[in-house]
Design a protein around this nucleic acid. Structure first.
Length: 572
DNA sequence: GCCGTTTTCGGCCCGACTGTTTTCAGTCG
């Protein structure tokens, strides 16, 4: 799929146009088109001109550029702008506090073409004296460069969310707050986030702001205003806090939850209805009468929309669906009846079957699947055929004793580098459930990796593909696979895909979950638990599922035990 | 550059904070 490449090109054009000081609406048109291409489930290369024009934000001009790129691997207008804007200058835009106007100024006056040159001249205080630049601006640019170097990559959701909760707890203790909530991409539960946004109401915003910038977490105060402040924590996370009146809390929450693209669509709708929408409320245009804003749902209701859950607010079609009253009823944590990927101390887990059962029951589950590693994964003490069958005996015995709870006997079978399963079918057929996964050969060519997954899915006993892309956020990129082929094959063979809830994995990513659902693929959200506290990661997986528009009916482990067993037998 | 139950031309989301100004531009979200 060339979708991402073309989206990248449109974003690049937007960056360059920005430096050129072009019409901001034209720039936005490129960005919006890029965003829509990224979220597109079909391959643009396979679309006709008419179908291209149906994509929101794509008109004749951009459709032509898409076709041009598919044919020639180039977009001439981009090559042309590149000749006008010096190479590397666009990279200056990635420095926080430095925008297109300043970038252009720096190039024109000082011939600065990249971040290194910028840093050198800023340190030598050569920027001071340019129009609109004095000591403070120079300091801010240097600080921006530091931030860029330090916090380049986005942080995994699972690392940031606990910090956010901790800060909220501290704030509530330190000062008088009425309501407080997480907003931003963290509330949308994106798999990685760049900063923490918090929204609160209070009778005394000044006191809240003061308490905030003096929290023990604070390493640096970036901004300290009467209703809005920003700090950097010792972990290097930026936290923005905004305080609003109770009357505006809902509108503000909607506004600060974003996404930006979702908000822009809402405001456009408001304008068309003769209304005005901002973080203070939703107002009638002619006399500015406030129509709502205390509750978040006011905004959606008055715009004639269904309430859109935060995880869906990405402008990936949720607004159109909400207009038609056709939003899916998203899966919830309470729908989850069990965990289908769990390790014991037989392989690389830390607990006995009994301990795992207790922990699972404590979380209200009806069942869990025991899926230790297979023999090929020596490093994880993978089980031989004999040890596997021994474990199965134990599981059978426990199942006879247990009341109101079931163990599924399973295996996380390794998909070998040639695509064969680590156990033969005779063994796999004795399992209730088979979870297959790639654990090695991540650097094989795309074709080979795809072939391995396809061959696993064709095996009648393989129920689920675990962590389908193998990524470890911030540590290891996903291995390369032909995702379209994998999704099609999952649908065709009736093999479910795992949404691995381990915070560094969150794999399959929500970007692929939605297109997979549209193909009819089934899913399982699993924690891959090795230590019992990891059972609590389930909610991260549920969030990814919700971001992918999944419902209860899409999920294997939302089924009751009997239905689940029936579903698992269907493929065999 | 896109888009049209007010339009095929003229709109296009809105406000806080900072640093530089002396009324506002730039940046950010």
């Amino acid at each position: 799929m060339k979708n991402q490449e073309i989206a990248g090109i449109f974003n690049e054009i937007a960056d360059l146009l920005e430096i050129k000081g072009e019409n901001p609406f034209r720039i936005r048109a490129y960005r919006r088109a890029a965003q829509n291409l990224e979220g597109l489930t079909k391959d643009v290369a396979a679309l006709s001109r008419e179908e291209l024009l149906e994509i929101p934000g794509i008109g004749h001009d951009l459709a032509e550029k898409i076709e041009e790129y598919i044919k020639t691997e180039k977009v001439k207008s981009l090559e042309d702008i590149k000749k006008e804007v010096p190479e590397g200058l666009a990279a200056l835009l990635s420095v926080p506090s430095l925008g297109p106007k300043t970038a252009k100024l720096l190039y024109e006056k000082l011939k600065i073409k990249n971040v290194d040159e910028l840093e050198k001249l800023a340190r030598e205080h050569k920027l001071i004296g340019l129009p609109g630049i004095k000591e403070k601006t120079e300091e801010n640019i240097l600080r921006g460069i530091e931030m860029l170097k330090r916090g380049k990559e986005r942080q995994p959701l699972g690392r940031v969310l606990p910090v956010a909760h901790e800060i909220i707890e501290h704030l509530e203790k330190a000062t008088h707050i009425e309501k407080i909530n997480i907003a931003g991409s963290l509330r949308r539960m994106k798999d990685t986030v760049k900063d923490i946004d918090i929204l609160a109401t209070s009778k005394n915003p000044h006191a809240v702001m003061k308490a905030f910038v003096h929290l023990p977490h604070v390493k640096e105060v970036l901004m300290h205003g009467p209703t809005k402040s920003s700090i950097v924590t010792r972990e290097g996370l930026q936290v923005d806090l905004r305080v609003v009146e109770d009357e505006s809390y809902g509108a503000a929450l909607a506004y600060f939850t974003g996404s930006k693209e979702h908000n822009i669509r809402l405001r456009e709708m408001a304008v068309k209805k003769g209304l005005k929408l901002n973080e203070y409320g939703i107002f009638r245009g002619k006399d500015n009468k406030k129509l709502g804003g205390k509750d978040e749902n006011d905004v959606y209701k008055i715009l004639g929309l269904q309430y859109v859950p935060p995880e869906m607010r990405e402008d990936r079609g949720e607004i159109e669906a909400a207009q038609k009253n056709a939003l899916p009823k998203l899966i919830e944590l309470s729908d989850i009846k069990g965990d289908l990927h769990v390790h014991t101390k037989q392989s690389d887990g830390s607990h006995t079957l009994e301990e795992l059962i207790d922990a699972a029951r404590g979380r209200g589950y009806e069942y869990i699947a025991i899926t230790d590693h297979s023999k090929g994964l020596g490093i994880a003490r993978g089980l031989s055929e004999e040890r596997l069958l021994e474990e199965k005996k134990e599981v059978d015995a426990l199942n006879k004793k247990l009341r109101g709870f079931k163990l599924l006997m399973g295996i996380e079978v390794d998909i070998r580098s040639d695509g064969r399963m680590d156990f033969d079918d005779a063994i796999l057929s004795k399992m209730d459930i088979v979870v297959a996964a790639i654990h090695s050969g991540f650097r094989q060519p795309k074709e080979q990796l795809t072939k391995r997954l396809v061959s696993a899915m064709k095996n009648p006993y393989v129920s689920i593909i675990a962590h389908p892309t193998g990524r470890l956020i911030g540590e290891r990129d996903a291995y390369e696979i032909d995702m379209e082929q994998v999704l099609n094959m999952a649908s065709e063979t009736g093999t479910a895909l795992e949404i691995n809830a381990y915070p560094l994995r969150l794999d399959l990513s929500d970007v692929y979950v939605k297109p997979a659902k549209e193909l009819g693929v089934k899913f399982a959200i699993s924690t891959d638990t090795h230590v019992i506290t990891q059972f609590d990661f389930m909610h991260y997986g549920v969030s990814i599922a919700r971001r992918g528009w999944l419902e209860k009916k899409d999920m294997l482990n939302a089924l009751k035990y009997e239905q689940l067993m029936k579903a698992l037998k269907m493929k065999r």
